[in-house]
Design a protein around this nucleic acid. Structure first.
Length: 705
DNA sequence: ACTACGAGACTTTTT
DNA sequence: GTCTCGTAGT
C-alpha cells in the first residue's frame, strides 16, 4: 500500500489520501493528474475504505478511460470489466441498457453519432419544407443539442420569435422520429439518465447508495447536463473527487462550463482545494512563458506551475514572409533536429485550424519527410463502413427508418424516389416503420423485386444472428449478399473501400474476441468510439495536429505555427465576450505540450480561404517575456513589432530558408534566416554540432548540400 | 440513376 | 483552395 504513495510529492500524496469528503484538485499541465486519479482509486480500494463496485470514475474520452483502466489494472486487483470506469456517454449507455424499459426505450435502441443525427435532422427539415435561409442544418443541430444540454425538451422550449418557433417544430419532429426509430443521440444518452433518475426515486436511491466514491477527470470540460447528472448520482454519503484545470478549458464552444468548478465548490461542500503545481514535463523557460501568458487572463482559480528541471533553451521565435516560407523553415528546422539525433515522432507541429496543415504537408512532401496528420476521417465515419453498419443496425432494429433509408437502395436495386414516396406514405398512414410497411407492400416491377431482395437479405441475416453464427461471419455474409462488395469491386478506385470493409470484418472479429459477441453491443461501440486510427506503421514520422487535439499529449520538441492575430487568436473567437481568454488558454495548452524545445512562428502573409491576407504577429507573442525568447530571422534585441518589419526579404538572399549547407569550421547545418542584402547580408544557420550562429556572407565560406 | 456543375462555407470537436 | 450539398441535365 505504501508503494502506492512512493514517488508522489506532498500535494499529490495529499490528494491521493484525502478523506474529508468531496475535493477539488486543480491539476496544472504535466503535474501528474492521471497518476493521482488512478492512485486514489487504488488507494480507496486497497485501504478497504470503498469496495471496487462502489467506485465510479468518469472521463471525457475513451482514450482517457482506457488509460485509467490499464493503470488501475496494474495497481489494484479485480475484474476490470466490472469497474464503472468510462466516459459520461459510455456510462450512461450502460445505465440505459440496464434500464431501457424504465427509460422508455426499445431493448435494441441504437446510438446516433453526429453524422447520423445530421441526416435525421436533414430529413426532418425537408419534411417540414424548411428552406436553408430560414434555418440551416447546422443551426438546427446546434440548437437541438444546446437545448438538450440545458435539459430542455421540445415541449418546453421558447417560442418567442419565428426562428425559435421553427426550431421548436423541428426539434419536436426530430424527437418523435428518434423515438420511432428507437435511436438516441449523444446528448440524449445523458438526458435520459437524468430524467430517469429524476422520475424514479427508487432507481436513483439504488445508485446513490451504491456509489460511495465518484471521481471525475477534466472537470473544466463538463457541461450543464453532465453537472446535473453528477449531482443526481451523488448520494448523501458519497464523495466526489474532481480533477481539473481551469486554465486548460478550451471547449466552451461545445457547451463546457468552467463555472462548474466554482459551483462544485459550493454545491458539493468542498472543504479543500488541492493544487498540483509542480510540473514534471517542461523546462523552466517554457513554464515561465506559459505562466506569463496565462497571467493575462482574469477570473482564474490561480495556480503557478514550477519545476525542478533546468532552465533549458530559449523559446525560439521565427518571423516568416509568408505561409510557405514558414512551412519550409519549420520542416528544414525539424530535419536539422533529426540530424542532431532527435526522433521525428518526438516532434510535433501544432496549429490553430486544420486548414493550416496543407502548406505544411506540401513542404514535408517536398523535403521527403515522413509525417502523420491527426484528426482526419475516422474509421466508422467512412461511407462504406457506415453503409455496412446500417445493414447491421437493421438486422437488430428493423424499425430504424434512418438506417433503412440509407441502404434500401444502396447498392442501387431499382428503388427510386417514386417508390420511396409510396412507401413513406403507406408507413405514415399505418403508423408503422418503413421496413414493416415495406414487408406488407407490393411494388410493381423492378422496384418490387429489389425491395423483396433487400428484405430477404435482412431476414436471412437475422436468422444467422439468431442461430448464433459468429458475428464476423455474419458481417461477411452481409457484405456479399447486400451487394456492397460487388458494388465497390466494380467501382474504380474502390480498392480502398473494399480494404476498409475487410478491416470492418477484422474489427468485428477482435471485438468479439475481446469484449462481447452481442451485435447490439458492437454497434454501440462503433458509435461511441469513432475508431481512432492509431499509427501502426513503424515509420518514424513528424506529428501534426490542431492545438485542441494535442491536449493531454506531450512532445520533446514543439513547433507552433501561424501565431498571428486573426488566426491565433482566431478572428471568430474575438466576437465572443470570453473568446479572447479561451484563445489564450488554448495558447497556454499549446506551450505546455513541449518538454525541451519550443519554437513559435508567424507569417506576415498567408493564403486563407484562397485569398492572400496580411497579418500582424499574435498578441500572445508579446505576452511572453522577451528574455525567454530567441528571435530568429531578425536583429537580436530589437523590440518586437518594429523588428518584425525590419527583417529583410529572403528573396534577396542567395540561400533559402530550410536549405542544408556546409561550413568549413561548423560543419553541416540548416539555414534559418537571412537579413541584409545579397552578399552584404548575414545568414543565420543552425549547425548540427555548433548550434545557431549568425554568419556574415562576405566572410563565411558556405557550400550548399 | 448517375454525373456534372455551381453555390456557399470555412475555428476548435469528443461522445 | 477544397469540401459538401443540392439541383439540373442526360
Amino acid at each position: 500500500m505504501e508503494r502506492l504513495l512512493e514517488g508522489l510529492n506532498a500535494q499529490q500524496r495529499e490528494a491521493v489520501t484525502w478523506s474529508g469528503g468531496s475535493a477539488l484538485v486543480l491539476a496544472g499541465a504535466g503535474s501528474g493528474k492521471t497518476r493521482v486519479l488512478t492512485s486514489r482509486m487504488a488507494w480507496l480500494m486497497q485501504t478497504g475504505q470503498v469496495e471496487a463496485e462502489a467506485v465510479l470514475a468518469v472521463t471525457f474520452t475513451n482514450k482517457a478511460a482506457r488509460e485509467m483502466v490499464t493503470r488501475l489494472g496494474a495497481l489494484a486487483r479485480g475484474n476490470a470489466r466490472e469497474w464503472w470506469v468510462g466516459t459520461f456517454h459510455g456510462l450512461c449507455h450502460r445505465f440505459l441498457r440496464l434500464h431501457y424499459r424504465e427509460a422508455g426505450l426499445p431493448a435494441q435502441f441504437q446510438i446516433l453519432d453526429m453524422t447520423d443525427q445530421q441526416s435525421v435532422i436533414r430529413r426532418v427539415l425537408k419534411s417540414l419544407h424548411v428552406e436553408d435561409d430560414q434555418l440551416s442544418l447546422r443551426q438546427a443541430q446546434q440548437a437541438i443539442n444546446r437545448y438538450k444540454e440545458q435539459g430542455l425538451r421540445a415541449a418546453v422550449v421558447e417560442r418567442h420569435s419565428a426562428v425559435h418557433r421553427l426550431i421548436q417544430e423541428v426539434y419536436e419532429v426530430y424527437e418523435r422520429q428518434c423515438q420511432t426509430d428507437g435511436t438516441v443521440d449523444f446528448a440524449e444518452l445523458l438526458l435520459r439518465c437524468v430524467e430517469l433518475w429524476q422520475r424514479s426515486g427508487a432507481l436513483r436511491d439504488h445508485y446513490q447508495a451504491r456509489f460511495k466514491a465518484i471521481l471525475i477527470d477534466e472537470f473544466q470540460d463538463t457541461n450543464a447536463l453532465q453537472y446535473r447528472w453528477l449531482k443526481l448520482l451523488r448520494g448523501p454519503h458519497a464523495e466526489v473527487f474532481a480533477v481539473g484545470d481551469d486554465d486548460q478549458s478550451i471547449y466552451s464552444f461545445r457547451g463546457a462550463e468552467v463555472a462548474n468548478m466554482r459551483h462544485f465548490e459550493r454545491d458539493f461542500a468542498v472543504q479543500k482545494v488541492i493544487r498540483l503545481e509542480q510540473n514534471y514535463r517542461s523546462t523552466g523557460t517554457i513554464l515561465d512563458a506559459a505562466n506569463a501568458l496565462i497571467n493575462h487572463n482574469t477570473q482564474r482559480f490561480g495556480k503557478t506551475l514550477w519545476s525542478d528541471s533546468e532552465r533549458g533553451r530559449p523559446i525560439r521565435l521565427f518571423a516568416a514572409d509568408n505561409d510557405e516560407s514558414e512551412a519550409r523553415f519549420v520542416v528544414g528546422d525539424m530535419v536539422s533536429h533529426q540530424a542532431e539525433g532527435a526522433r521525428l515522432s518526438e516532434m510535433v507541429v501544432l496549429y490553430r485550424s486544420n486548414a493550416q496543415s496543407r502548406v505544411l504537408e506540401q513542404a514535408l512532401v517536398a523535403q521527403k519527410v515522413p509525417y502523420r496528420v491527426y484528426g482526419g476521417l475516422r474509421f466508422y465515419d467512412r461511407q462504406e463502413v457506415r453503409h455496412a453498419l446500417a445493414y447491421l443496425r437493421l438486422v437488430v432494429a428493423p424499425d430504424d427508418d434512418q438506417a433503412f433509408l440509407r441502404v434500401v437502395n444502396f447498392p442501387p436495386r431499382g428503388i427510386g424516389a417514386r417508390s420511396l414516396e409510396l412507401l413513406q406514405q403507406a408507413a405514415q398512414e399505418a403508423g408503422n416503420s418503413l421496413s414493416r410497411s415495406a414487408a406488407g407492400m407490393t411494388l410493381a416491377g423492378k422496384a418490387g423485386q429489389g425491395l423483396r431482395q433487400f428484405l430477404e437479405t435482412l431476414a436471412y441475416l437475422r436468422t444467422e444472428v439468431e442461430s448464433g453464427r459468429a458475428l464476423a461471419d455474419v458481417t461477411r455474409t452481409l457484405l456479399e449478399r447486400s451487394g456492397l462488395l460487388d458494388y465497390y469491386r466494380q467501382d474504380k478506385g474502390g480498392e480502398e473501400r473494399i480494404a476498409n470493409l475487410e478491416e470492418l470484418i477484422s474489427a468485428v472479429y477482435s471485438f468479439v474476441e475481446q469484449q462481447s459477441s452481442d451485435l447490439v453491443t458492437f454497434l454501440a461501440h462503433a458509435s461511441l468510439e469513432g475508431g481512432e486510427l492509431e499509427a501502426h506503421d513503424g515509420v518514424d514520422s513528424i506529428q501534426m495536429m490542431t492545438v485542441h487535439a494535442a491536449k493531454g499529449l506531450e512532445f520533446e520538441r514543439v513547433w507552433i505555427v501561424g501565431m498571428e492575430d486573426g488566426l491565433f487568436p482566431h478572428d471568430n473567437a474575438l466576437g465572443e465576450p470570453r473568446g479572447l481568454e479561451e484563445e489564450r488558454r488554448l495558447a497556454y495548452v499549446a506551450l505546455t505540450r513541449a518538454r525541451q524545445h519550443l519554437t513559435l512562428s508567424h507569417a506576415r502573409a498567408r493564403v486563407l480561404h484562397g485569398q492572400l491576407r496580411y497579418g500582424k504577429p499574435s498578441r500572445f507573442l508579446e505576452e511572453i517575456p522577451e528574455a525567454l525568447c530567441l528571435k530568429l530571422g531578425m536583429e537580436q534585441g530589437d523590440r518586437r513589432n518594429e523588428s518584425y518589419h525590419a527583417t529583410s526579404s529572403l528573396s534577396r538572399s542567395p540561400w533559402r530558408v530550410g536549405q542544408r549547407v556546409r561550413h568549413a569550421k561548423f560543419g553541416e547545418g540548416t539555414v534559418l534566416a537571412f537579413e541584409g542584402d545579397g552578399a552584404e547580408g548575414r545568414l543565420q544557420v543552425n549547425f548540427r554540432d555548433f548550434g545557431i550562429k549568425w554568419l556574415a556572407l562576405a566572410f563565411a565560406k558556405l557550400t550548399g548540400l
